[in-house]
Design a protein around this nucleic acid. Sequence first.
DNA 1: TGAACATTGGAACAGATGTTCATATATCAG
DNA 2: CTGATATATGAACATCTGTTCCAATGTTCA
Lengths: 108, 108
Amino acid sequence: MFRAEPERLSPDQTVELADMLRIMGDPNRLGILLACLSAEAAVGRIAASLGLTDSLVSHHLRLLRAARLVRARRQGKQVFYTVADAHVRSVLSDLIAHVREPGQRGAE
Amino acid sequence: MFRAEPERLSPDQTVELADMLRIMGDPNRLGILLACLSAEAAVGRIAASLGLTDSLVSHHLRLLRAARLVRARRQGKQVFYTVADAHVRSVLSDLIAHVREPGQRGAE
DNA sequence: TGAACATTGGAACAGATGTTCATATATCAG
DNA sequence: CTGATATATGAACATCTGTTCCAATGTTCA
Protein backbone atom coordinates (compact mmCIF):
# COMPACT_ATOMS: atom_id res chain seq x y z
CA MET A 1 0.00 0.00 0.00
CA PHE A 2 1.42 3.33 -1.02
CA ARG A 3 -0.10 6.59 0.07
CA ALA A 4 0.89 9.83 -1.63
CA GLU A 5 1.96 12.62 0.68
CA PRO A 6 -1.27 14.17 1.83
CA GLU A 7 0.08 17.68 1.45
CA ARG A 8 0.66 17.63 -2.25
CA LEU A 9 -1.84 19.09 -4.68
CA SER A 10 -1.82 19.05 -8.46
CA PRO A 11 -0.93 22.35 -10.12
CA ASP A 12 -4.54 22.73 -11.14
CA GLN A 13 -5.78 22.13 -7.63
CA THR A 14 -3.21 24.57 -6.33
CA VAL A 15 -4.40 27.27 -8.68
CA GLU A 16 -7.99 26.48 -7.81
CA LEU A 17 -7.34 26.77 -4.12
CA ALA A 18 -5.25 29.91 -4.54
CA ASP A 19 -8.07 31.46 -6.47
CA MET A 20 -10.49 30.78 -3.67
CA LEU A 21 -8.08 32.16 -1.09
CA ARG A 22 -7.39 35.25 -3.16
CA ILE A 23 -11.07 36.03 -3.40
CA MET A 24 -11.47 35.61 0.36
CA GLY A 25 -8.28 37.56 1.03
CA ASP A 26 -9.81 41.00 0.97
CA PRO A 27 -11.07 42.40 4.27
CA ASN A 28 -14.30 43.77 2.87
CA ARG A 29 -14.99 40.67 0.86
CA LEU A 30 -14.29 38.43 3.83
CA GLY A 31 -16.58 40.59 5.92
CA ILE A 32 -19.28 40.19 3.31
CA LEU A 33 -18.78 36.44 3.33
CA LEU A 34 -19.04 36.30 7.10
CA ALA A 35 -22.11 38.50 6.99
CA CYS A 36 -23.96 35.93 4.93
CA LEU A 37 -22.50 32.82 6.48
CA SER A 38 -25.11 31.89 9.04
CA ALA A 39 -28.12 33.40 7.35
CA GLU A 40 -29.22 35.12 4.19
CA ALA A 41 -28.52 38.82 3.99
CA ALA A 42 -29.63 41.47 1.54
CA VAL A 43 -27.07 43.66 -0.20
CA GLY A 44 -28.17 46.85 1.50
CA ARG A 45 -28.14 45.21 4.89
CA ILE A 46 -24.65 43.83 4.41
CA ALA A 47 -23.44 47.22 3.25
CA ALA A 48 -24.94 48.97 6.24
CA SER A 49 -23.55 46.47 8.72
CA LEU A 50 -20.05 46.89 7.33
CA GLY A 51 -20.19 50.61 6.66
CA LEU A 52 -19.71 50.21 2.91
CA THR A 53 -21.61 51.57 -0.04
CA ASP A 54 -24.20 49.37 -1.68
CA SER A 55 -22.32 49.67 -4.94
CA LEU A 56 -19.07 48.41 -3.49
CA VAL A 57 -20.74 45.49 -1.82
CA SER A 58 -22.49 44.63 -5.05
CA HIS A 59 -19.20 44.68 -6.93
CA HIS A 60 -17.61 42.36 -4.42
CA LEU A 61 -20.63 40.11 -4.45
CA ARG A 62 -20.26 39.72 -8.17
CA LEU A 63 -16.75 38.37 -7.67
CA LEU A 64 -17.90 36.12 -4.86
CA ARG A 65 -20.70 34.88 -7.08
CA ALA A 66 -18.34 34.27 -10.00
CA ALA A 67 -16.13 32.26 -7.67
CA ARG A 68 -19.18 30.30 -6.55
CA LEU A 69 -18.62 31.32 -2.97
CA VAL A 70 -22.08 32.81 -2.55
CA ARG A 71 -25.49 32.28 -4.03
CA ALA A 72 -28.18 34.83 -4.75
CA ARG A 73 -31.91 34.65 -4.25
CA ARG A 74 -34.20 37.43 -5.33
CA GLN A 75 -37.20 38.32 -3.21
CA GLY A 76 -39.04 41.43 -4.24
CA LYS A 77 -36.72 44.39 -4.53
CA GLN A 78 -34.06 42.75 -2.49
CA VAL A 79 -31.49 40.12 -3.35
CA PHE A 80 -30.44 37.85 -0.56
CA TYR A 81 -27.03 36.26 -0.51
CA THR A 82 -25.77 33.21 1.28
CA VAL A 83 -22.53 31.31 1.41
CA ALA A 84 -22.80 28.92 -1.51
CA ASP A 85 -22.69 25.48 0.03
CA ALA A 86 -21.65 23.34 2.95
CA HIS A 87 -18.17 23.07 1.52
CA VAL A 88 -17.43 26.78 1.62
CA ARG A 89 -19.24 27.13 4.90
CA SER A 90 -17.04 24.47 6.40
CA VAL A 91 -13.86 26.08 5.15
CA LEU A 92 -14.88 29.40 6.64
CA SER A 93 -15.83 27.80 9.92
CA ASP A 94 -12.46 26.12 10.13
CA LEU A 95 -10.65 29.38 9.45
CA ILE A 96 -12.71 31.21 12.03
CA ALA A 97 -11.97 28.55 14.58
CA HIS A 98 -8.27 28.89 13.93
CA VAL A 99 -8.30 32.67 14.21
CA ARG A 100 -10.09 32.32 17.51
CA GLU A 101 -7.55 29.94 18.96
CA PRO A 102 -4.90 31.31 21.29
CA GLY A 103 -1.99 32.47 19.16
CA GLN A 104 0.29 29.66 20.25
CA ARG A 105 3.57 30.84 18.81
CA GLY A 106 6.47 28.49 19.08
CA ALA A 107 9.96 29.84 19.55
CA GLU A 108 10.35 33.17 17.79
CA MET B 1 -26.60 30.49 28.58
CA PHE B 2 -25.97 32.72 25.64
CA ARG B 3 -23.65 31.78 22.87
CA ALA B 4 -22.47 34.42 20.40
CA GLU B 5 -22.89 33.51 16.78
CA PRO B 6 -19.84 31.44 15.98
CA GLU B 7 -19.42 33.03 12.58
CA ARG B 8 -18.79 36.57 13.69
CA LEU B 9 -15.28 37.97 13.94
CA SER B 10 -14.13 41.33 15.19
CA PRO B 11 -13.02 43.77 12.50
CA ASP B 12 -9.43 43.28 13.61
CA GLN B 13 -9.73 39.53 13.40
CA THR B 14 -11.34 39.85 10.01
CA VAL B 15 -8.47 41.94 8.72
CA GLU B 16 -6.00 39.55 10.26
CA LEU B 17 -7.59 36.56 8.61
CA ALA B 18 -7.97 38.35 5.28
CA ASP B 19 -4.29 39.18 5.41
CA MET B 20 -3.39 35.56 5.87
CA LEU B 21 -5.70 34.50 3.07
CA ARG B 22 -4.36 37.17 0.74
CA ILE B 23 -0.82 35.99 1.26
CA MET B 24 -1.83 32.40 0.59
CA GLY B 25 -3.97 33.41 -2.35
CA ASP B 26 -1.22 33.47 -4.94
CA PRO B 27 -0.60 30.23 -6.85
CA ASN B 28 3.18 30.40 -6.62
CA ARG B 29 3.13 31.37 -2.99
CA LEU B 30 0.65 28.63 -2.17
CA GLY B 31 2.86 26.18 -4.02
CA ILE B 32 5.82 27.32 -1.97
CA LEU B 33 3.84 26.85 1.20
CA LEU B 34 2.80 23.36 0.20
CA ALA B 35 6.38 22.57 -0.77
CA CYS B 36 7.52 23.17 2.78
CA LEU B 37 4.50 21.85 4.59
CA SER B 38 5.54 18.32 5.45
CA ALA B 39 9.26 18.85 5.58
CA GLU B 40 11.91 21.52 5.40
CA ALA B 41 12.90 22.62 1.95
CA ALA B 42 15.74 24.80 0.71
CA VAL B 43 15.01 27.79 -1.50
CA GLY B 44 16.69 26.36 -4.57
CA ARG B 45 14.92 23.07 -4.20
CA ILE B 46 11.54 24.75 -3.90
CA ALA B 47 12.28 26.88 -6.93
CA ALA B 48 13.33 23.90 -8.99
CA SER B 49 10.33 21.84 -7.99
CA LEU B 50 7.96 24.59 -9.01
CA GLY B 51 9.83 25.77 -12.06
CA LEU B 52 10.44 29.24 -10.67
CA THR B 53 13.54 31.34 -10.35
CA ASP B 54 15.37 31.40 -7.04
CA SER B 55 14.88 35.13 -6.91
CA LEU B 56 11.15 34.95 -7.24
CA VAL B 57 10.86 32.25 -4.61
CA SER B 58 13.02 34.29 -2.29
CA HIS B 59 10.80 37.31 -2.77
CA HIS B 60 7.72 35.30 -1.98
CA LEU B 61 9.39 33.69 1.00
CA ARG B 62 10.06 37.11 2.41
CA LEU B 63 6.34 37.85 2.34
CA LEU B 64 5.53 34.48 3.82
CA ARG B 65 8.09 35.08 6.51
CA ALA B 66 6.73 38.55 7.25
CA ALA B 67 3.27 37.04 7.60
CA ARG B 68 4.71 34.44 9.96
CA LEU B 69 3.52 31.65 7.73
CA VAL B 70 6.97 30.10 7.36
CA ARG B 71 10.14 29.92 9.41
CA ALA B 72 13.72 29.87 8.21
CA ARG B 73 16.66 27.83 9.39
CA ARG B 74 20.10 28.37 8.00
CA GLN B 75 22.40 25.41 7.48
CA GLY B 76 25.56 26.23 5.67
CA LYS B 77 24.88 27.93 2.40
CA GLN B 78 21.34 26.81 2.32
CA VAL B 79 18.30 28.16 4.10
CA PHE B 80 15.58 25.70 4.89
CA TYR B 81 12.01 26.81 5.19
CA THR B 82 9.07 25.21 6.95
CA VAL B 83 5.50 26.12 7.59
CA ALA B 84 5.66 28.19 10.73
CA ASP B 85 3.67 26.27 13.29
CA ALA B 86 0.97 23.70 13.91
CA HIS B 87 -1.64 26.39 13.54
CA VAL B 88 -0.78 27.25 9.96
CA ARG B 89 -0.13 23.63 9.16
CA SER B 90 -3.58 22.73 10.37
CA VAL B 91 -5.22 25.45 8.32
CA LEU B 92 -3.47 24.27 5.20
CA SER B 93 -4.33 20.66 5.87
CA ASP B 94 -7.97 21.58 6.25
CA LEU B 95 -7.94 23.50 2.99
CA ILE B 96 -6.25 20.66 1.17
CA ALA B 97 -8.80 18.22 2.51
CA HIS B 98 -11.60 20.39 1.25
CA VAL B 99 -10.10 20.78 -2.20
CA ARG B 100 -9.77 17.04 -2.40
CA GLU B 101 -13.37 16.38 -1.49
CA PRO B 102 -15.81 15.67 -4.30
CA GLY B 103 -17.15 18.98 -5.55
CA GLN B 104 -20.59 18.50 -4.09
CA ARG B 105 -22.40 21.39 -5.64
CA GLY B 106 -25.93 22.00 -4.52
CA ALA B 107 -28.52 23.27 -6.96
CA GLU B 108 -27.00 25.71 -9.40
C1' DT C 1 -48.14 55.34 -15.88
C1' DG C 2 -44.93 57.35 -12.59
C1' DA C 3 -42.15 57.70 -8.39
C1' DA C 4 -39.34 55.38 -4.95
C1' DC C 5 -36.42 51.76 -3.68
C1' DA C 6 -32.73 48.08 -4.36
C1' DT C 7 -29.32 46.31 -7.02
C1' DT C 8 -26.29 46.11 -10.96
C1' DG C 9 -23.12 47.74 -14.41
C1' DG C 10 -19.39 50.55 -16.64
C1' DA C 11 -15.74 53.92 -16.80
C1' DA C 12 -11.93 55.87 -14.54
C1' DC C 13 -8.46 56.37 -11.18
C1' DA C 14 -4.94 55.55 -7.51
C1' DG C 15 -2.56 52.21 -5.36
C1' DA C 16 -1.02 47.54 -4.69
C1' DT C 17 1.15 43.35 -6.55
C1' DG C 18 3.93 39.78 -9.15
C1' DT C 19 7.70 39.35 -11.95
C1' DT C 20 12.31 40.20 -14.01
C1' DC C 21 16.90 41.69 -13.99
C1' DA C 22 20.91 43.05 -11.92
C1' DT C 23 23.43 43.35 -7.83
C1' DA C 24 24.61 42.32 -3.02
C1' DT C 25 25.45 39.36 0.92
C1' DA C 26 26.74 34.96 3.09
C1' DT C 27 28.95 30.51 3.40
C1' DC C 28 32.27 27.22 2.19
C1' DA C 29 36.30 25.04 -0.59
C1' DG C 30 41.04 25.55 -2.11
C1' DC D 1 42.73 35.76 -0.23
C1' DT D 2 39.80 33.96 -4.76
C1' DG D 3 36.22 31.64 -6.74
C1' DA D 4 31.89 29.16 -6.55
C1' DT D 5 27.43 28.32 -4.70
C1' DA D 6 23.08 29.75 -2.32
C1' DT D 7 20.13 33.13 -0.94
C1' DA D 8 18.62 37.88 -0.43
C1' DT D 9 17.71 42.51 -1.89
C1' DG D 10 16.43 46.72 -4.69
C1' DA D 11 14.74 49.05 -8.66
C1' DA D 12 11.80 49.12 -12.49
C1' DC D 13 7.92 47.69 -14.98
C1' DA D 14 3.44 46.04 -16.52
C1' DT D 15 -0.59 44.37 -14.74
C1' DC D 16 -4.12 43.68 -11.63
C1' DT D 17 -7.40 45.31 -8.04
C1' DG D 18 -10.33 47.98 -4.91
C1' DT D 19 -12.84 51.97 -4.86
C1' DT D 20 -15.75 55.88 -6.34
C1' DC D 21 -19.09 58.04 -9.11
C1' DC D 22 -22.76 57.97 -12.09
C1' DA D 23 -26.06 55.83 -15.08
C1' DA D 24 -29.08 51.83 -15.95
C1' DT D 25 -31.99 48.09 -14.76
C1' DG D 26 -35.52 45.82 -12.29
C1' DT D 27 -39.14 45.74 -8.60
C1' DT D 28 -43.01 47.37 -5.89
C1' DC D 29 -46.76 50.25 -4.99
C1' DA D 30 -49.94 54.12 -5.75
